[in-house]
């Protein structure tokens, strides 16, 4: 298990190194350059050049990359050009808010999605199954921004039960904090629920046909034990992978939903950085998003091992 985790961490570092090169090159190819942005629209060429020299922008790309990467390794993400602040605190704040959104939304999706999937599998072919399928398809087929707008209209503008957007830190009290989360979370759940429910249903159906489930029944175990103890743990493997990918997705910013609900997470930060050509901020944000994705996947694989002793032992052997 330790060797496996070590291996995965080495790979993770490799992936991030490659990612950093790509991010750096892409931002280099983007129109506009940092020096003239700092100098302002009306600065003379001399001033711009002077700033470029001061920032080391006249040096070869490889040197520039080296300096940037070394900074990141020291924990220095650079300064935002537009906000004129260090990037790290801004980014961490946005990441924190995205994390809150991701954790709450995924907790709901996991609990409801798995429960619906199990229910549909157990009542396969019956009305419950068809109902679960129908409703979850509706969630997947209708785009997320549509649900978001409907929710804002109904609960925000019409019923005036919930704020239509924004964010309140938990320091302001639990209720304001929670009420700002409800609509974005519900939208995300509608978007992600179907896949989890369908996936759990199909792997649950497979597991319910295995010999060990038949044997558990032959031992006289009641259905609840058969389903929850014997079948579910084995059926959850594919679901865990997808949940982890979804987690990375939300953490990396769900731009549309964050925009509609004016939720200040990673998605909005990235959008802001791109719109304002804030190159250091773009680089840092994308890098952190990739790291979050990779970590989410690593967590999924480790969870996998936790659920499946066969994989756990395979790791020990390696």
């Amino acid at each position: 298990m330790l060797a496996y985790t070590l291996t995965r961490l080495v790979y993770l570092a490799l992936v991030l190194a490659v990612m950093s090169v790509l991010v750096f090159l892409v931002t280099q190819a983007m129109p506009g350059d940092v020096a003239s942005m700092i100098a302002g629209q009306f600065a003379s060429k001399e001033v711009v050049d002077a700033i470029a020299v001061k920032l080391g922008l006249d040096q070869p790309l490889i040197v520039q990359y080296g300096r940037w990467a070394a900074g990141i390794l020291r924990g220095d993400l650079g300064r935002s050009l537009v906000l004129e602040q260090p990037i790290a605190p801004i980014l961490m704040e946005a990441l924190g808010r995205s994390l809150v959104l991701a954790v709450v939304a995924l907790a709901v999706v996991a609990v409801v999605g798995i429960a619906l999937g199990v229910l549909a599998a157990v009542r396969r072919g019956k009305l419950t199954d068809q109902l679960v399928s129908g409703v979850s398809y509706l969630g997947i087929a209708v785009p997320d921004f549509f649900w978001a707008i409907v929710l804002v209209l109904v609960f925000g503008s019409y019923l005036k039960l919930l704020p239509t957007g924004g964010y309140a830190p938990i320091a302001d009290g639990f209720l304001p904090w929670a009420s700002h989360l409800v609509l974005p979370v519900v939208t995300l759940v509608l978007m992600l629920l179907a896949r989890i429910a369908r996936l759990t249903r199909s792997s649950m159906i497979d597991v319910l046909q295995t010999n060990y489930v038949k044997f558990a029944r032959a031992k006289g175990m009641p259905e609840s034990v058969v389903i929850l103890r014997h079948a579910l743990k084995n059926a959850l493997l594919p679901t865990i992978t997808v949940l982890a990918i979804d987690f990375g997705l939300i953490l990396g910013g769900v731009v549309v939903i964050e925009t509609i609900f004016s939720y200040p997470g990673m998605g909005r930060l990235l959008l802001f950085a791109i719109q304002r050509h804030d190159l250091p901020l773009i680089q840092a944000t994308i890098l952190i998003v990739s790291a979050a994705y990779c970590l989410a996947n690593l967590t999924a694989d480790l969870l996998y091992a936790f659920v499946n002793p066969k994989i756990r032992h395979g790791m020990r052997a390696s």
Partner: peptide
């Protein structure tokens, strides 16, 4: 079942739950 009438099936490799 499992008390007065017990069963053993064909394939031992798949009759035991891999997760328990």
């Amino acid at each position: 079942r499992g008390d007065r009438i017990a069963a053993v099936f064909q394939d031992p490799f798949t009759s035991l739950n891999p997760a328990l």
